[in-house]
Design a protein around this nucleic acid. Structure first.
Lengths: 237, 237
DNA sequence: GTCCCAACCGAAATTTCTTCGTGAACATTC
DNA sequence: GAATGTTCACGAAGAAATTTCGGTTGGGAC
C-alpha cells in the first residue's frame, strides 16, 4: 500500500494511514472472479461475448423472461455451448454483476485515495449513482433484480452485496470518531438512510428515467444526506 | 426522541377538512379488485385457497422458482384448475399484492383521520414498516419481487405502486405549506429520502431478519427522518 | 504432422407451463 | 324432483423452455 506521505491540508481530518481502509477495499475489489479459468483464447472471447449478450438480454427482458436461446444467439454460439460456461441460467445471472461490482470498487478505491472521510463518503454515494448511469444495463440487473432477490444465497454474490454496506459502515464509523456524525445514533440506521436514499434515486431513474440527470440528482442527494448528518451531530452536541 | 416543542412554533397545524386528502385515500384504497366475479361459493373458497397457497410458495421460493404445480397442490386443486382463475403465473403473482395493498391504505386512512400532517407522515412510515412485519410473506413478494420489477406493465399494479409515493408527495406538500419542510428542497428528493430510508429498513429485515424488532426500527427511522426534515427547514430559515 | 483436449454443436431428454376436451357439481326452471 | 344450462374441476395432451449427452471440430504443444 502506498504510504500517505502526500497529505491534504486539513490537519484533523486526514484518515489514518492504515486502519483497515486499504485492506478493506483491497479485499472487496478482488473477490474470486471465476473458479474455472479458460484455456484457449477463443474461449475467453466467447466468455466475453456471453457476458455482453446476457447483460443486454437480461436488462431488456428481465431474468425470468430471458431465454437462453436469445442470449446464445446474441453471443453468436449455440445454446448448448453456453452450458460449458455456466451451469444454469440463474448461475449466469448471478455471476454477471460480480465483475462490474469489482470494477466499481476498484475505481472507487483509486478515486478515494488521499481524501478526507467526508469526501470519501460523498464520493461513494455520488459514484454509486454515476456508475449506475454509465452502466445502465448492469444497474437494471443489479438494482432491480439481483440486490433485492430472495436468492442471494450464492456466497460470492452475497459477499459482494454486503461489501456495499461494509464500506459505508466503515466510513460512518470513521465519521463518528471524527465527531461529525452523532455518536448516539444507531449506525445501521444511519447506513440504511444513506443506502436507501441513494438507491431510491437510482431505482426510480432505472424504472422511469426520472430525474433526467441522474448524476446531478445523485450529487444533490448525497450532499443533502451528509449535510443532514452533520446538522444532526451539531444539534445533539 | 427529545421533545421538539422548540421547533414547533406554528399554531395552525390542523389539516383542512378536505383539500383532496380523503378523495385521494378513497381512490387508492378502492382500485379495481378483480374483473371476473366468482359465482359459486366453492369457487370463492378455491380462489382464497389459491391466494393463500400462492403467497406462501412465492414468498418461499420467489416467483421465478415457484412452480404452478406446487401452488396448486398447496391450494388443494389441480394445476389446470388454476388456469380457470388466473391466465398465467405472472398474472397471479402480480395480482396477489393488490388486495393487501388496498387493505393497507384503508387501514391507514382510518388511522390517519383527525391527525396533523406531521402525525400523518409519521404514521405512514411507521405503518408501512409495521404492515410488512405483520404480513411478512406478502412483504417479501411485494418489496423484493414486485416493486423493483421491470415488468410492472400491468396498469392496476403500477397505479397501486405509484399510490405509495403519491401519498407521501401529498403530505410533503402539505408540510411545505405549513412551513416545517424547507420550501427550497426538491420535493421528489425529499420523498425519495423518506421512501428509501424506510424501505431499506424493511428490505434488510425481510432478507436478514435484522434488525430484530422491525416495528421499533421503523419507528426510530421514521422519527429520525421527520426530525431531520424539520431541522433542515429551521437551518435554512 | 500428430495427438490431445478444450470448445462447440445438434438432437434428444427433461421440466415446467398452458390448453383442451370431458365430466361432475351446482343452480335454475318447470 | 327431473330436465337443463352453467360453473367448476381435472387428466391428458400440447407447447415452450431449459438442460444433458454423444460426437465432431479446431487450436496449440510437442
Amino acid at each position: 500500500m502506498p504510504a500517505k506521505d502526500v497529505m491534504t491540508a486539513q490537519p484533523p481530518m486526514v484518515p489514518e494511514s492504515d486502519n483497515g481502509w486499504d485492506s478493506l477495499l483491497q479485499e472487496i475489489s478482488h473477490r474470486p472472479k471465476r473458479a474455472t479459468e479458460r484455456k484457449q483464447d477463443r474461449s475467453k472471447r466467447t466468455e466475453q461475448q456471453i457476458l455482453t449478450g446476457a447483460l443486454r438480454v437480461f436488462a431488456r427482458d428481465g431474468i425470468s423472461r430471458s431465454r437462453i436461446a436469445d442470449i446464445a444467439a446474441e453471443a453468436g454460439i449455440s445454446a448448448s455451448t453456453l452450458y460449458e460456461y455456466y451451469k444454469s441460467k440463474e448461475d449466469l445471472a448471478y455471476d454477471l454483476p460480480l465483475s462490474h461490482l469489482a470494477e466499481f470498487f476498484e475505481g472507487y478505491h483509486v478515486a478515494a485515495a488521499n481524501k478526507t472521510t467526508r469526501e470519501r463518503l460523498l464520493l461513494y454515494l455520488v459514484m454509486s449513482a454515476d456508475y449506475a448511469r454509465e452502466h445502465a444495463e448492469w444497474a437494471r440487473l443489479f438494482y432491480l433484480e439481483i440486490w433485492p432477490s430472495v436468492f442471494v444465497t450464492d456466497t460470492d454474490l452475497r459477499h459482494s452485496i454486503n461489501d456495499f454496506t461494509r464500506v459505508l459502515l466503515f466510513l460512518v464509523n470513521e465519521a463518528i470518531a471524527e465527531g461529525w456524525i452523532a455518536r448516539d445514533r444507531n449506525i445501521y440506521e444511519t447506513v440504511a438512510m444513506l443506502t436507501g436514499g441513494i438507491n431510491q434515486i437510482i431505482i426510480t431513474w432505472l424504472l422511469y428515467r426520472k430525474p433526467r440527470n441522474l448524476t446531478k440528482a445523485g450529487n444533490e442527494m448525497a450532499e443533502r444526506l451528509i449535510a443532514v448528518l452533520e446538522i444532526e451531530a451539531h444539534a445533539k452536541q
